[in-house]
Computed example of a mutant assay.
Amino acid sequence: MAEEYLHLMGRGALLSLRVMLTSLAVALVLGFINGVIKLFGPRWLRAISWSYTTIVRGIPELVVMLLMFFGGEMVLNMLLNMLGIGALRFNSFISGVLALGFVFGAYFTETFRGAFQNVDKGQLEAAAAFGMSTGQMCRRILAPQMLAFAIPGINNNWLGLMKASALVSLLGLEDMVWLAEQTGRATHKPFLFYLIVSLIFLSITACSGWFFRYLSRRYAFYGAGG
């Protein structure tokens, strides 16, 4: 019996990890695009980006998640109907991922914006004077240095996203938190299963810390202005 419950927890942990990583991908893309818009976009787009980051960072993740779960599908289907496309159905996984990605995209926006601003503009001007194309400057100078400055913020936001991913259990997604609640009730041992969940989160945190320390060392040269 215990082995069966532990197998279920393992399945739930893998699902939770999928939620975290997929949400991270959404947040990184959204944050990068909005960071670029905030710095280089036209005024009307910068206003939209500013409103997005200001409003979203002021609303709890759970509230945004519930709004997207109950209202996101309705709004999207209204737009699809206007385009003559059939309706879509959101499940708890999609709602959770989109909500987490949407919320933390606002935090990543500020991370990338600050990282871009820390890059020495003199190096870009020197590269242009040497005849580098825009693509070469972005690939060889701007991107590596921007990433070096962004790594600490990405790490912090990832840890926040990882912990917030536990909220998807409230949408009925059978992740490890949801399974810990169910198995705890069935066995009358909730402390044991919540302890297992805590240890899994701590393991992910430890692995993440090692990975980001490696990235920091890897890009330290660029962050020093090399």
Rank of each mutant, 00 (worst) to 15 (best):
V168S: 04
W158Y: 15
S95F: 02
A87E: 13
F102C: 00
M74N: 11
Y214F: 15
L159Y: 07
V97G: 00
G35F: 02
P152G: 03
I59K: 07
L179D: 02
A186P: 04
G131R: 04
F108V: 06
L199M: 14
N81H: 12
L17I: 11
F40Y: 15
S216Y: 07
A2F: 14
G84V: 07
L199R: 06
M68Q: 10
L80C: 04
V97A: 10
F201Q: 06
W158A: 12
S95G: 09
L159H: 09
M9H: 03
A127S: 06
R46H: 03
T134R: 14
G135F: 12
M132G: 02
F116Y: 10
G101F: 00
L66H: 09
R218F: 10
S165T: 11
A47H: 05
A143K: 09
W50K: 11
M137P: 01
A126Y: 09
K38V: 02
V26L: 12
Q123L: 11
P144Y: 03
V56F: 14
F116T: 00
N157I: 04
Y52A: 05
I200A: 13
Q145M: 08
R89C: 00
G86L: 05
Y52T: 06
S216E: 15
T22H: 07
Q136Y: 08
L80G: 06
Y5L: 12
P144C: 03
I94F: 13
A128D: 10
F130D: 08
L167E: 06
R46A: 03
F112T: 01
S169A: 15
A143T: 12
V197N: 06
A143C: 08
G71E: 01
N155R: 15
A115S: 10
L98H: 02
K163H: 08
Q145Y: 04
L88W: 11
G131W: 09
E174R: 13
R89I: 10
M20A: 14
L171D: 05
S165N: 06
M82W: 13
L24H: 03
S23M: 03
G101R: 03
Y219N: 05
L45K: 08
I200C: 09
M132W: 10
L83K: 10
V29L: 14
F191Q: 10
S169H: 05
L179K: 14
A99Y: 03
V19I: 12
E3C: 03
S23N: 00
G135I: 08
W50I: 08
T53P: 02
V97D: 08
G96I: 07
L6V: 14
I33F: 13
L159F: 10
G135W: 14
T54K: 11
